[in-house]
Amino acid sequence: MIYYDRVSKVYSGGDKTVALEDVSFSVEPGEFVSVVGHSGAGKTTLIKMLLAEDKPTSGAVFFESINIHEVPLGKINALRRKIGTVFQDFRLLPNKTAYENIAFAMEAAGRPEAEIHSDVPHVLELVDLGDKMNNFPHELSGGEQQRVAIARAIVNQPDVVVADEPTGNLDPVNTFEVVQILKKINDLGTTIILTTHNKGVIDSLKKRVITMDRGKVIRDDREGKYIL
């Protein structure tokens, strides 16, 4: 479903920084893959490649046999709708309420009003925020904001949910809740790619773990643990 084919990324700054070096792996539908590594190991760059936020220096990333970086800028949004995204810093729209943030993702996908009216409360219920739908992001706690972000990521029923350090800014209780939600989404059949450097999360998941170090994949375990 997702295939990284010998992907390298070199940032040409003052001195060249190698963010990814010859990375190859694939993700099957329905998998729950965790990518672990220290800060600067290349986890976020890996995600950016999948979202076409950045281009690889060499190699290619395929999503359902489409080379992501050959999709023109004007059409990339259709592809992005198949990938739900959750970020460490939540990235909610500050001027929109929880409800509107989620509705925006549906509007952008051109979904009809009736569907939005029924789906948004439903998905907010799912992340246990039914009573906060009219609150703005700044009125919500970090954990609540992240749950809104997750609701936004799944509302269009994407094939994949990509979560880039979603628990990085959360306390242990909220971390646990977010991971439980992701697990629940995975159980319903959605592929999950999670990057984290939280040992507890990885060890409790007992799912596939890809370990990265300095831009390279150094381990890929079927049922892995956090080993670094």
């Binding site: 592809l79 992005r80 729209l93 925006f104």
Partner: peptide
């Protein structure tokens, strides 16, 4: 500008 980026990442078209 950050908002615009987020909108792009959640799959909104340019014109929208």
């Amino acid at each position: 500008r950050d908002e615009i980026q987020v909108m792009r990442l959640v799959g909104a078209g340019m014109a929208y």
